[in-house]
């Protein structure tokens, strides 16, 4: 037992050395982490100060040009470009500032801001990113082009089928926002399906940005992509293009549920006279999802006779559809429907 003591002592010393080593290692790690955080914070603060200074200079230039009713002084512009727009970061910061102005001001200010932007040769900076930038920079550059109505159709057409959806969606919005006519001409070049949000935003662009004459949305009905066909059907309904009712009618027999559902919604919006007859005829063979939509349309806009006809078809439906019918039927007064 006594002979073992020196050996234990040796081991203990080794463990103590190890603990010391680890303590020093973790101390260095913690100190370096804290230093790193402090340096990052300092750099961030310095960058924020630099941004604020640049924004102040930019604000002064924009104010002089927008509000002092003077024409663009080439000397002032060149000086600003030379002194304050030396790096890409500075160019981006000033461009963001111009975009913020565009988002808040309208009228003659918009045209003046674009004039200033191009005089500072920032349009060339944006086109440069579109040609050779990283994908996330390209997405932002397309947004700049949309907001400033910078025409770069050829460059952006190449990005319509980009592998990153952020770039693709900005390219779609660009074509709608900047079009003078035929805003959906770009869809013929699409290889990727449109997402639900892209459809919503494109519709928004058509409503609030596009100022030309209303396009013929039926051009999308023959597109090979299913989402484009659905989008075209939706737009025909939303924009009340009743002249295309007969063109979308065959889509009631489409293979996909989504297409049939959108067609039912569009034809219902267009108040197509024969719709309810078609729906009642197709009802037994429909999927539960489409049956739900038919149920909504008939209960909402159908006559008393049509609701009664639908009632006879309900027993063969999915239990959930039956419950929905029973629940909603109580809300529909037959007397009201007859009237």
């Amino acid at each position: 037992m006594i002979e073992l003591i020196p050996e234990i002592k040796n081991h203990t010393e080794g463990i103590i050395h190890l603990i010391h080593g680890l303590s020093v290692f973790f101390l260095i790690l913690v100190v370096s982490l804290i230093l790193r955080i402090i340096i990052l914070r300092h750099l961030k603060r310095r960058r924020a100060v630099r941004r604020m200074k640049l924004q102040d200079k930019g604000l002064k230039l924009i104010h002089i040009f927008l509000f002092e009713e003077t024409s663009l002084d080439a000397e002032i512009v060149q000086e600003f470009q030379r002194k304050h727009l030396r790096t890409d970061w500075r160019k981006k910061t000033f461009t963001d500032q111009v975009i913020e102005f565009l988002e808040n001001f309208r009228g003659e200010s918009t045209g003046k801001l674009k004039e200033l932007f191009c005089a500072l040769k920032l349009d060339q900076y944006v086109f440069g990113i579109l040609k050779e930038g990283k994908w996330y920079e390209q997405a932002v550059a397309i947004h700049y082009c949309s907001e400033l109505s910078l025409k770069a159709d050829d460059l952006i057409k190449k990005l319509l089928n980009h592998k990153y959806y952020r770039v693709r969606e900005q390219a779609y919005y660009y074509f709608v926002k900047t079009a003078e006519s035929n805003p959906l001409a770009f869809i013929e070049h699409l290889d990727h399906e449109l997402t639900m949000w892209e459809m919503i935003n494109l519709e928004d662009c058509l409503r609030y940005y596009y100022t030309g004459s209303e396009p013929d949305f039926s051009i999308g009905l023959s597109h090979p992509l299913i989402s484009v066909r659905i989008f075209a059907i939706r737009l025909i309904g939303v924009f009340n293009q009743f002249e295309h009712s007969l063109k979308i009618l065959p889509f009631l027999q489409a293979e996909k549920d989504r297409v049939r559902t959108e067609t039912i919604k569009a034809l219902s919006r267009l108040q197509y006279a024969e719709l309810h007859t078609h729906l009642l005829r197709n009802f037994p063979g429909e999927s539960p999802r489409v049956q739900d939509h038919i149920l909504n349309v008939i209960l909402d806009k159908g006559s008393y006779t049509e609701i009664k006809a639908l009632e006879t078809l309900i027993p063969g439906c999915h239990a959930q559809t039956q419950r929905r019918f029973e629940r909603n039927r109580r809300l529909v007064s037959p007397a009201h429907k007859i009237a």
């Binding site: 927008l66 509000f67 565009l102 988002e103 808040n104 001001f105 309208r106 009228g107 003659e108 200010s109």
Partner: peptide, 8 residues
Amino acid sequence: TKPFNPNE
């Protein structure tokens, strides 16, 4: 309503 025309 924003966006607005500064002259207006």
